[in-house]
Design a protein around this nucleic acid. Structure first.
Length: 351
DNA sequence: TAGGCGTGGTC
DNA sequence: TGACCAAGCCT
């Protein structure tokens, strides 16, 4: 049985038409691979199309402000991907004459580009026979080779195996075929082995329980926090501040506030947080709403209160703005804030 | 090297 | 409905 022939002929009949596929444009390939990190194809498509419309070339990305690129990324998550891509665009423009490097090591050295992304861009955009190893391919090869433990040793073995199997004439298609196989047939649970083009050589299937490959890692339970935030009004404008680039949700805008400490009421916590962040003691009015939001490693329940400032001026080290409700669209906010905006829109934004 | 880093979909 | 999952990278 010919592994790569079967994989590629399966791909020909099953591949999806995607806006970032079959376009020989390294910028499109690079951007899509960054967006696809830990993110499903259907989520990425609208973001990709909107981004390309706003920034048709890599030079447009380099010329844009971080604020503007984050605005386009808003809602996609893992915002360091966006900040790193923005930095990398500058490097390509300034140090590579605007040409995306077609050399693996040079491309790998760009911020936000790791072994997966470098291999994907090299193989898809530059036709270089370098195998990609992502979550899908790790699972597919774990099952084909019958290796339950996917640690350092196995990683090298996967690479060796794929380096031999990869089609030197169509390396990009080969890599994408294996990833598609992993996401549609060789799924983590309930794999559709009867539809698999390489089921005859799969050791995990032969073992009778392919789903048990590879061995799953135990995950830590993530903590939950109560959070209070203030919608601080001065006449028809409210106060927002920008999060530090190095923090969680770095570079996005938010309302002042923070975690509720043990023994604190929501309003006590909010007064304390606003004083710590802005050095003012606002009057806290009614609660606007509560939203629950799950992050990658913890969850929150955010309670938003209307506040007013009694003539005081907030003093903050972070960039800040007074904006009107209709100006929200200009600022990149995290998803939890957008949930609050929905509540505010229904509520009429009135104190 | 294991943990930090978002979000939306699925069951 | 909580737990898991999805085309990783950085520190």
């Amino acid at each position: 049985m010919l592994f790569k022939e079967n994989i590629l002929s399966w791909y020909e009949t099953h591949k999806r038409i995607l806006p970032f596929r079959d376009i020989q444009n390294p910028y499109y390939t690079w951007l899509s691979e960054i967006m696809l990190q830990q993110t499903q194809v259907d989520t990425v498509i609208p973001y990709f199309e909107k981004w390309i419309k706003t920034f048709p070339t890599l030079n447009d990305v380099a010329l844009a402000s971080q604020h503007d690129v984050l605005k386009q990324w808003e809602g996609l998550g893992y915002y360091s991907r966006c900040r790193n891509f923005h930095k990398a665009a500058h490097i390509v423009m300034n140090e590579h004459d605007g040409i995306i490097p077609s050399n693996y090591d040079k491309f790998l050295s760009l911020p936000g580009v790791g072994p997966y992304t470098a291999a994907a861009v090299m193989s898809i955009a530059f036709n270089k026979p370098i195998p990609t190893i992502d979550g899908n391919i790790r699972r597919v090869t774990s099952r084909i080779l019958g290796r339950k433990k996917m640690r350092q040793n196995a990683q090298a073995r996967i690479k060796n195996y794929l380096q031999i199997e990869i089609d030197p004439l169509r390396p990009g298609d080969f890599n994408q075929a294996l990833m598609d196989l992993g996401s549609s047939i060789c799924t983590p649970t309930k794999p559709k082995c009867n539809q698999c083009p390489v089921n005859e050589i799969c050791i995990a299937l032969g073992s009778g329980n392919p789903e048990s490959y590879p061995e799953k890692m135990k995950k830590k339970k993530s903590p939950h926090y109560n959070v209070a935030a203030g919608l601080i009004w001065d006449r028809d404008k409210f106060f927002i501040q920008k999060r530090s680039e190095k923090s969680l949700l770095g570079g996005l805008w938010e309302f002042p506030g923070g975690k509720v400490e043990k023994g604190e009421s929501l309003k006590m916590a909010l007064k304390r947080e606003i004083f710590e962040e802005c050095k003012i003691k606002p009057t806290i009015h009614r609660k606007v709403g509560v939203v629950k939001h799950v992050f990658s490693h913890f969850s929150i329940e955010m309670n938003l209160f209307h506040c007013s400032i009694n003539g005081e001026k907030p003093k903050t080290d972070l960039p800040s703005q007074w904006i009107k409700p209709n100006e929200i669209a200009q600022y990149p906010f995290p998803a939890a804030n957008h949930k609050l905006f929905k509540i505010l829109d229904q509520d009429g934004w009135n104190i």
